[in-house]
Simulated scan of single mutants.
Amino acid sequence: MAREDGLDSAVAAMRSGDEAAFRRVYRAVQPPLLRYLTVLVGAADAEDVASEAWAQAFRDLDRFEGDADGFRGWITTIARNRALDHLRHARRRPTSDEPVERMVELRDDSDVEGDTLGRVQSEAVLALIATLPRDQAEAVMLRTVLGFDAPTAARILGKRPGAVRAAAHRGLRQLAKKLSEEP
Rank of each mutant, 00 (worst) to 15 (best):
L61H: 13
R160L: 11
L106Q: 11
A166Y: 11
V145P: 09
E4W: 01
R160T: 08
V11N: 07
V11C: 03
L172D: 03
M141P: 02
G158C: 05
T116F: 08
T152Y: 04
A10Y: 03
P133K: 10
H169Q: 14
R72Q: 08
V104R: 11
R80D: 09
L142P: 02
S122W: 04
F64T: 11
L40K: 13
A139G: 13
A10R: 01
R102H: 10
P161M: 08
F64M: 14
S180K: 01
Q56V: 14
R35D: 15
D18L: 00
H86K: 01
R143M: 12
R63G: 15
A20T: 01
R3N: 00
A153Y: 05
E101R: 09
G147M: 04
R165Y: 05
R107D: 14
A90Y: 06
E113L: 07
D85I: 03
A53G: 15
P31V: 04
D5K: 06
R3E: 06
P94M: 09
A79Q: 13
G158A: 05
Q56N: 15
T131M: 04
D5A: 12
L157F: 03
R119C: 03
G6H: 00
G158W: 11
R143H: 03
G147N: 10
L179Y: 00
D149I: 00
G147D: 10
Q174M: 03
L40Q: 15
E47C: 05
L126D: 03
L117I: 14
K177A: 12
R27G: 13
A127K: 13
A166C: 10
K177R: 13
L146G: 09
E138A: 07
L87Q: 14
V140E: 06
A43W: 04
A20I: 00
S9E: 09
V112T: 06
T144V: 09
L179N: 05
R92W: 05
T152I: 05
G162R: 08
V41Q: 08
E138Q: 06
R119S: 14
T131Q: 01
V41F: 11
A10Q: 04
I156A: 00
D108M: 06
D62R: 14
D5S: 07
D111C: 01
E101N: 01
A10C: 07
R23F: 11
E52I: 02
A167V: 03
F148L: 13
A137C: 03
D62P: 07
R165M: 04
E4R: 08
I129W: 04
E52K: 13
Q136G: 06
H89T: 15
R27T: 13
R15E: 09
V120G: 00
F71S: 12
F58C: 12
R72T: 07
E105T: 09
V104F: 11
V49C: 13
R59L: 14
D108K: 01
A176R: 14
R88C: 12
A168Q: 07
E105I: 03
L33E: 08
D69V: 04
A79H: 14
L7N: 09
E182G: 05
M103V: 09
D5M: 00
E113C: 00
A53R: 14
T131I: 00
T131R: 08
R107L: 12
T131F: 10
Q174F: 01
V112I: 06
E123F: 09
R102P: 02
A139Y: 01
V112D: 08
Y26G: 07
F22Q: 13
V120R: 07
H86A: 15
R155F: 06
W74E: 12
A13K: 10
L7F: 02
D18M: 02
D18I: 06
R27N: 15
L172H: 01
G158N: 06
